[in-house]
Amino acid sequence: MQVAPPTTHTPETQTQLFRYVLQLADTSLILAHRLSEWCGHGPILEQDLALANIALDFLGEARSYYQYAAELEGQGRTEDDLAYLRSAVEYRNPLLVEQPNGDFAATIVRQFIYDTFHYHLLQQLQAGPDTQLAAIAEKSVKEAAYHLKWSSEWIIRLGDGTEESRRRVEQAIASLWRYAGELTTPNATEKELQAAGLVPDYAAMLPQMEAHVARVFEEATLPVPQGVFMQKGGKDGRHTEHLGYLLTELQYMQRTYPGLTW
């Protein structure tokens, strides 16, 4: 197989791209971490396996992004330096993915919101001009398609299941929908890279995303939330309180025993 040579960028673009790839890496890692908290505690063995599977996909994707980010930065930092030695305010994941697992309904709603964005994003990135980002996206988009199918089917099951499942999924939507808007609201870095054609135009992705949500919610007999006030800040390092605890656990070993190889 022939591998396309890495794309060259101006130093300014390279710095922006480093920030963006790091944001993608943080997002995948934090979501993987949350999903991995389910391991051994799922509602049924088959779904325990599915959750671990999805966590592993996100972890693999995170590692690819971190490795590429380290390369773009060119300061000799490794994937582990980037993941384990940055503080909460330096993390760039959107608020959605750091939200606690809650019950299975909350995990599914969080996943469905992110999968909808993730799948459509990767579809664009795989055709983008940066060859390395495109290669990561091309590999991950197949996994993302499966994730989206899985979380969509669960939204439908829970919405159109029992009274209790419906109540729980509605409650999860009420508490998590406010984090959906940040995904498609570009921050300064994303705006610059969108102008440079390296990051897709989110506004152009929205109709397809909304159509998918409408289709799934209709089958789930759930109303699509309207007029929700959208929170943001994670992509600029202003997080909810949950992230600090997550990082304390994630980074425990590297912080306790600095500089060792494991």
């Binding site: 991995s36 972890l59 582990d80 656990e249």
Partner: peptide, 19 residues
């Protein structure tokens, strides 16, 4: 220990193992 594994590689191997 999945949430406390000391490196991304170890985290991934451990999660796969428990799975």
């Amino acid at each position: 220990w999945i949430t406390r594994a000391p490196s991304l590689k170890r985290k991934s191997i451990l999660l796969a193992k428990v799975q």
